[in-house]
Amino acid sequence: MSTVDNSVSGAVPGAPAPRRQPAWLKLWPVQALLFLALLVAVWAVTEALNLVIPAYQGQILLFTGINVIITLGLNLITGVTGQLSLGHAAFMAIGAYAAAICTVSLHLPFALALLLGGLVAALFGVVLGFPTLRLSGDYLAIATLGFAEIVRVVNTNLKITNGAIGYYGIQKRVDLPLVAMLAVAAVAAMAWLENSRNGRAMRSVREDEIAATASGVNTTFYKIQAFAVGAFFAGVGGGLYAHTTTFIQPTDFGFLKSVEQLSMVVLGGMGSIAGTVLGTIVLTAAPELLRFMSNYRMLVYGATLIVLMIFRPGGLLGGVDLRDAVRRALMLGRSRTVRTSVGGDGQ
């Protein structure tokens, strides 16, 4: 794997240039401490926020945070690695059921249940990752869609999930500070992953699979890795969802849920963490914000998707390099090369 680093950084036009940072910032204990400090700060802020903001807005924020964790996973699969998935809700379902079964039937601690939910989903991510070896583009999309439908039907028929009646009796264990911390941790983990050697390799799979293979990137390995990690995030998000609503049914994780998650990623800007977060915020809040339109709400929602795609086809933040923009605004450095390619043309 040692060849990957050199080959990939050459092959990818969008790979970030090395940053000029003080040497002490690069030490991992320093970074870990900074990260911990960030989490504590997030916790403190949201605890305070929790006291101030009304419960309704807090509830929307909470679902936004859960969705961010889930869509970041999808962004890794579809946005970064270029593998179009129409079945992300299946991983969420697997994580939700696994975590719920862990806390309700097995009486495991909540944190462990969340982790296990994520891991079980990741396992299925690996299983689903294998077809990607042979499929690409829309064929892969329909295979993932089929996988999600199969998961839904299985959940409807299994005893352990209580079938269509749904799984109830789950304790409410989720609050805003917890979700906020996990969401921030998810963003940090994704940023770290995308800027690592693995992330660059994944990007190279999206940009040009053949070129990536020729440069020595084990594309199979990175595709499966993307599915596993993406599914893990969805699984954790699913566990959070189950312990928020306290009741889950197979129909909660249907095709429309997958479509909604994909819309969030594409709307914000494929392959961009900031874009995914923004898209998720917008689309989680949109149904609530559009409430005043009453019956016309979903009509406007559909039309908004079309209009936004026409005017910002690369997504809200597509083609905008946030870090670059911030740096330029602060005059901290010269503008880097323009990234012209926008995610989504992969394969």
Binding site: I60, L278, A285, F311, G319
Partner: peptide, 26 residues
């Protein structure tokens, strides 16, 4: 960096307006 087109700017503005109104929800 690619400049935002006027249309793109409008689209962003639309979203921003929506985001602001969440805060302003009575």
């Amino acid at each position: 960096m690619r400049r935002l087109s006027a249309k793109g700017f409008l689209a962003l503005l639309l979203v921003a307006a929506m985001a602001v109104s969440v805060a302003g929800c009575s």
